[in-house]
């Protein structure tokens, strides 16, 4: 009897394929058609940058949103991948760069960054909760100071310039339109990867570890192992973002992962929202727009254009103070209110 498997409808929670709703189609078409009406500057500097920052922040979202671990190492992992690309590939610093082919240095860059992220994770998960912030921040700082002092491998203060993407298909990928599509493709892929992961056995277990580590251990899961593997997964996404970032700037320096940059990734992810993988991209877009237009906006309201950081800090404080789930949280609240208003039982009030 027991061998007769019950014929069951797919369980909604784990197995339902996302039906693709209409707004997503519209957004997708809009993004694909963007080069038709947006300027090169907007494509390269705002959207390209947003996709990259979004991916790095997405790797934080994976750890914080699904794993309950707020890691500040993601920007460092990204920068390390960028460094490896510069060191193993070609750059303006010919005495260090090895000039290997791209099919070797790109996988290696991702691999090395993933190993580094995993090791940091292995150290960080030995402690709990908010300790993670301290430890990852301290390691990020150590990386920054180390790259600044080390001239043999990381070329110290100056870092590497002239780090450009290979000319696949004879295209110059640093031109605005190709770069836009390249970063868009990577961002969409990593977004889908995270969405997919969240419904796999590993993703479900990771969320279980976040909610109730003690029970997870009592069900036979190694809590530590799941957390560490989450770092590996997140590091791969951060590494891809890091390589793109280095290509965009055509350079990598210790300042690529300086303390302010490390903190900015956290700000982006929190402002966008850590509950769903789209949040980091929203946060990144806001951040990119703000930082590009900050001086204009500040001048318009009669302040010096240098006060960008003040605006970012105050905005971040406002989000943390009033909508801890970020912009996504605001959106959800708005949706919920609309639902409530439509619900006849709750009356048509408010």
């Amino acid at each position: 009897m027991a061998d007769v498997l019950p014929t069951v409808a797919p369980r909604k929670s784990l197995l339902a394929l996302e039906r693709i709703p209409a707004p997503v189609w519209v957004l997708g078409l809009l993004l694909l058609a963007m080069p038709a009406f947006a300027s090169n500057f907007v494509l390269f500097q705002i959207f390209g940058w947003s996709f990259i920052l979004g991916m790095i922040a997405l790797s934080l979202m994976v750890l914080a949103g699904y794993g309950g671990m707020v890691s500040l190492i993601q920007m460092t992992v990204a920068a390390l991948a960028g460094y490896v690309v510069a060191i193993l590939g070609t750059s303006g610093v010919t005495q260090i760069s090895l000039g290997w082919p791209w099919w070797l240095y790109i996988p290696l860059a991702i691999l090395i960054a993933a190993v580094f992220g995993t090791l940091v994770g292995a150290l960080a998960v030995r402690t709990e909760g908010i300790y993670t912030i301290m430890i990852t921040l301290a390691i990020a700082a150590a990386f920054f100071y180390f790259t600044r002092q080390n001239y043999g491998i990381f070329n110290g203060y100056t870092g590497f310039n002239n780090v450009i993407p290979p000319a696949w298909f004879g295209v110059d990928w640093r031109q605005a339109v190709p770069f836009y599509y390249m970063t868009l493709a990577c961002a969409v892929l990593s977004y889908l990867a995270v969405l997919w992961m969240s419904r796999t056995p590993f993703g479900l277990a990771l969320q279980g570890v976040r909610d109730n580590p003690r029970r997870m251990a009592a069900l036979g899961f190694s809590v530590t192992a799941h957390r560490i593997v989450a770092y590996t997964f997140a590091s791969v996404i951060a590494a891809v973002g890091g390589i793109l970032l280095v290509w965009q700037n055509a350079q990598v320096t210790p300042g690529t992962a300086g303390i302010p940059q490390v903190i900015d990734i956290l700000v982006i992810a929190v402002v966008g929202g850590l509950k769903r993988p789209i949040g980091p991209f929203i946060g990144a877009l806001i951040y990119a727009i703000l930082s590009v237009f900050a001086s204009d906006i500040l001048h318009a309201i009669g302040m010096s254009g240098e006060r960008f950081k003040l605006v970012v800090g105050l905005g971040f404080l406002a989000v943390v103070g009033f909508s801890p789930d970020g912009v996504l949280g605001l959106w959800d609240k708005y949706q919920a209110r609309r639902e409530a208003n439509r619900d006849p039982l709750l009356g048509g009030g408010r």
Partner: peptide
């Protein structure tokens, strides 16, 4: 009781204070 949120607030405050002091 919201440890993480408190810590995030301290990050915001440090950004703001740093810029005010620079100013």
């Amino acid at each position: 009781g919201e440890e993480l949120r408190q810590t995030l607030v301290t990050i915001g405050i440090s950004i703001v204070l740093a810029d005010l002091m620079l100013w």
